[in-house]
């Protein structure tokens, strides 16, 4: 399957501190879960993939577009749906306004934007609240709005940074079904999360990051199989993840 995004030799950092070190990544249709402890570089990697920050080193291709300049980055962003962990919003917007504005930002053609916004809102089951103002919505609904904003216009690459933070169990189940449907439609989804259960539920592929490096990549079953005897965790996947981190010294 052809890569939607290719990163080669990516380096990122704040001043002298490296946050991502020499990272290669291919993102293909399906759901890629990014796991890692705090400070592992997951958010920085997503921001780099979203072309929000230029990399210090390395090359990026999004849907075949080499992203080497601001102009190229803007062109590439038509193919990217990005939901930051903390996303701001104008509280006076309705759900429709919010998603429609994000469609406009992404460059969805004017004649298709209205339908795309309605479809995205429908996709996250907010059609009935599409005229409600964001300030009147619960945290979970706002998250769903965010997801709608990321998928509006059906970009081939969707980047979701900690999308399940603050969702209740029912909302998380709903979120998983949304991601599964995206997967079924051959969208490439990169999902950064702390929650191993989310990975187990929806991801085809898992990348574990620690200290700015990708220390492991494979499918969830292999991750579960990586568990060492006596490793901490309530599920095989958690034990595998904890074993990997312990092996990297990332738990210290």
């Amino acid at each position: 399957m052809k890569s939607v995004a290719e990163l080669r030799g990516i380096g990122q950092g704040y001043g002298a501190r490296d946050v991502i070190v020499d990272l290669d990544l291919d993102v293909r249709p399906g759901v890629l879960g990014l796991l890692g402890p705090n400070g592992a570089g997951k958010t920085t990697l997503l921001r780099t993939l979203a072309t929000v920050v230029p990399p210090k080193r390395g090359t990026i291709h999004i849907c075949g577009i080499p992203v080497g300049s601001q102009r190229a980055a803007r062109r590439a962003r038509r193919h990217i749906g990005y939901l930051p962990q903390h996303f701001g919003f104008y509280p006076g917007f309705t759900v429709y306004d919010f998603v429609r504005y994000c469609a406009w930002l992404r460059g969805v053609p004017d004649d298709a934007a209205d339908a795309a916004a309605r479809e995205a809102i429908d996709f996250v089951n907010l059609t009935e609240r599409s005229r409600a103002r964001l300030k009147s919505l619960s945290g979970g609904m706002i998250r769903r709005c965010g997801i709608a904003s990321a998928i509006v216009g059906r970009p081939p690459l969707v980047l979701l940074d900690e999308p399940t933070v603050g969702l209740d169990p029912a909302q998380r189940l709903e979120f998983r079904s949304v991601v599964r449907r995206l997967r079924d439609e051959d969208t490439a989804v990169v999902l950064s999360t702390h929650l191993v259960e989310d990975v187990a539920a929806v991801c085809d592929d898992v990348a574990v990051m620690a200290s700015g490096r990708m220390v492991w990549r494979g499918d969830p079953e292999s991750l579960a199989g990586a568990a060492r005897p006596g490793a901490e965790g309530d599920s095989p996947l958690e034990r595998g993840y904890m074993s990997l981190l312990a092996g990297q010294g990332a738990l210290a």
Binding site: A50, R71, R77, Y82, P84, H86, G88, C102, L105, G107
Partner: peptide
Amino acid sequence: SLEQAAGG
């Protein structure tokens, strides 16, 4: 934060 990833 969302506009950072906007197109041209």
